[in-house]
Write a protein that binds this DNA or RNA. Sequence first.
DNA 1: CCGCAACGACGACTTAAGTCATCGCGCCAG
DNA 2: CTGGCGCGATGACTTAAGTCGTCGTTGCGG
Lengths: 239, 239
Amino acid sequence: MATLDPIETLRRVPFFSVLPREELQALASHCGVRRLSRDETLFTEGDPCEGLYVVQSGGIKLFKMAETGREQVLVIERAGSTVGELAVFDGGAYPASAAAIEDSTLLYLPKREFLELCRRNSAVSFAVIRALAWRFRYMASLVEELSLKEVSHRLARFLRDHAVASGLRTRRGIEFPLEETNQEIAAAIGTVRDLVSRNLRRFVDRGIIKMERRKVIVLDMAELEAQIAGSKRAATVEK
Amino acid sequence: MATLDPIETLRRVPFFSVLPREELQALASHCGVRRLSRDETLFTEGDPCEGLYVVQSGGIKLFKMAETGREQVLVIERAGSTVGELAVFDGGAYPASAAAIEDSTLLYLPKREFLELCRRNSAVSFAVIRALAWRFRYMASLVEELSLKEVSHRLARFLRDHAVASGLRTRRGIEFPLEETNQEIAAAIGTVRDLVSRNLRRFVDRGIIKMERRKVIVLDMAELEAQIAGSKRAATVEK
DNA sequence: CCGCAACGACGACTTAAGTCATCGCGCCAG
DNA sequence: CTGGCGCGATGACTTAAGTCGTCGTTGCGG
């Protein structure tokens, strides 16, 4: 594979894209390249933070791991996104672990350079804040799901997001490949792989989706959305 | 109650405390005052964002609500903290609802002034980033708990945090008042009030804590910490 | 090309979470 | 001062989540 242009990679990051080309170039000159094989660890929760990573190609998952081995994925970042930048700012260790979900190439930017840039360039700082605001919003949704929704609702949202992001509209419905294993889906939505299998089967039985091996065809998007809107059986107000 | 000095309130906010007094004064001149009774709503999830609030006195909870009425509290903010600032930056609606957990007084800062300040003062922007980094870290912990830990582990962490924050070390153990109802605790740790009661009883039965009405005495902090370290019964790796 | 491990599926089972009804107590509003 | 409501506690029950064993399939590394 041809070497990717680090300047073009940096330009894809929202808070670097505000920089003129010369500054991107200067920044790129400080960057190292880090290559990871699939499943290789980038950093582990609690590791001291030395800098941030920019995904050039592939994908990186941020995740928390229980001592039983069960994982909760916080987010998956792909090309043009950053990983590990929060620990740069508050001087703490990494709050979660990161690993490659496929062979990946990342740029590594030492924290000193990044901090310097943010201090002297308020447009960058400002764009960083915007990125963090978005992340918080996303995390708030994840908290809501994990606390207030059942596994079937969370799986429905997962499928809907995939349909929206990469679905192909056909006469049968919206088709998309399910590229993750049930284990990976379980880690994303906060359950175990048996329940992913069981709930997919339930959606098939109800005529909401059809499955052809690992291809999903959404037959009834309205019903899928209705599934998403459901809640756990928890009434703290009178019914 | 005497009127609180808005300049002193603003000074307590980490990302405003970097400002000299004259700038705090100018900022304070743009602030309105908002008073809320206990349980009164500040804003509702989805409301358009007009500005940020600074807590002068009392307490504000940010929370998500299921249609069943069950709540998940994201965070509780007290004097010297801000509420609703994230939506200022990404132009979105409020990602969660906010309400007073007791009679409260807040300063209201229109978003235009706040955005202006961040744009021209990179020390403020920088401090905002730091604050957001901390929030993300906190949210990552909440996600970890909700996904990977059982109710008893989450309650143990709640009690430990209270013991650490406001516990009084006595010969009997660490004593602190449990000021929240079981319902409020349930909303904080992601469960229902019945389970809070039941798990408190379990800790009493195991000699970890003693309860005198709503006062908690931690008899065995080491065991409480051990409770916190536990995980859900989920093994995705062989045992 | 083949063997092995990972994966998907599923049934039977256990456990945790949650519901609901009820009772006693305490506090607050009228 | 009193009545009513909120709260705590608890038992009995239901449901969802999760475990475990097993079988068949698939894909990848040697």
